[in-house]
Amino acid sequence: MPTFALGPNQYGKAETRIVRVVRGPGGDELTDLNVSVALRGDLAASHLTGDNSGVLTTDTQKNTVYAFAREHGIADIETFAARLAEHFVGGQPSIHEARVTVEQYPWLPVDGAHTFRRDGGEVRTATVHHGPYGTRTVSGVTGLVLLKTTDSEFHGYVKDRYTTLPETRDRILATSVNATWRHGGAADSATARQALLDAFADTYSLALQQTLFAMGSRVLERCPDVVEVKLSLPNKHHFLVDLAPFGLDNPNEVYYAADRPYGLIEGTVRRDGVAIPEEVVWSF
């Protein structure tokens, strides 16, 4: 008879939405988060026999997120995630590892006191792993949309019988930055974000790959606590529209913004000579 074994497994409460208002005489502060928890440990019995004696329910995990926001506050999302992860591991003998991922949605004040508007910009992220190996934190940003109207070229690439893309010495370069940076403590995410913006703006780009390396390097230069930056940069293509059929020229003024397909440039920039600890491996 065939036998079967339980492989890596985890469970948790995904996407707990929480909005916290801190009220003060000078106006309110609004924090809007999406929190996901995943736990691992001595949980095989629940899968194999239905014995739930070691299971901390996902509803309890959700309630813990809400209670911690009230009891301890949120501060920065890295601290909030670490506090939760340490609690889940330290509070239950059956739980050996915790991963807490937080997304933060920005809101901007309208009247300076009680009214806000949702910012359509990027989302801040933080993921904390806590277990026997200690605590490891990865911060980041998703959906940071950037565009420069010039100072970008693309030429000298391989050409074969299927190549139709013309070389260009002046093009629009646009992307939606998804970046994470691994650090040993409370990295200054505002500084890291500004480093990404500055490098994108002041790098004369001969390829999006070159810009990626410049952006990652700038974060490492300005954030001494960061040891590694990972970037995923979709190339949001803008193609010149051929206006000749209408008797018009087009001196790099009218473009078609293509939705898909798109080039996807991804890479990691690390400090040279600095040992990088192994990733915490989660199968899901």
Rank of each mutant, 00 (worst) to 15 (best):
L6C: 08
P8G: 02
Y11H: 07
A14C: 13
E15P: 01
R17K: 13
I18L: 15
V19G: 06
R20L: 13
R23T: 09
R23N: 09
G27C: 03
G27T: 03
D28G: 00
E29A: 14
L30T: 05
T31H: 11
L33Y: 09
S36Q: 03
L39Q: 10
G41V: 01
G41C: 01
D42C: 08
D42K: 13
T49S: 11
T49V: 11
T49I: 09
G50P: 08
G50I: 03
D51I: 02
G54F: 03
G54M: 05
D59A: 12
Q61T: 00
T64R: 10
F68R: 08
E71C: 06
H72A: 15
H72K: 14
I77G: 08
I77Y: 05
F80T: 05
F88G: 06
V89E: 02
S94L: 02
S94H: 10
I95L: 10
H96I: 09
A98R: 07
T101F: 09
T101Q: 13
E103K: 13
Q104H: 13
Y105Q: 04
P106W: 11
W107N: 05
V110C: 03
H114K: 10
D119C: 12
D119N: 14
G120A: 05
G120M: 00
E122D: 13
H129E: 15
Y133M: 15
G134L: 03
T135V: 09
T135H: 08
R136Q: 15
T137G: 04
V138M: 12
V138E: 15
S139E: 13
V145W: 06
K148Y: 03
K148L: 01
T149I: 02
Y157A: 07
V158A: 10
D160Y: 02
R161H: 14
T163R: 02
T164C: 04
T164D: 12
L165Y: 08
D170E: 14
I172D: 01
I172E: 02
T175I: 06
N178L: 07
G184Q: 10
D188G: 06
D188H: 06
S189N: 13
T191A: 15
T191S: 14
A192P: 08
L196R: 06
T203Q: 05
A207L: 02
F213Y: 15
G216V: 00
S217V: 00
S217N: 14
V219R: 04
R222Y: 07
C223E: 08
K230R: 15
P234M: 03
V241P: 08
F246S: 11
G247Y: 04
G247V: 01
N250R: 01
V254M: 05
Y255C: 01
Y255V: 00
A258E: 15
D259S: 14
D259P: 03
Y262E: 10
Y262L: 09
Y262I: 02
E266G: 06
G267H: 05
G267V: 01
V269Q: 02
R271V: 00
G273H: 04
I276F: 02
P277S: 06
V280A: 14
W282L: 14
W282F: 13
S283G: 05
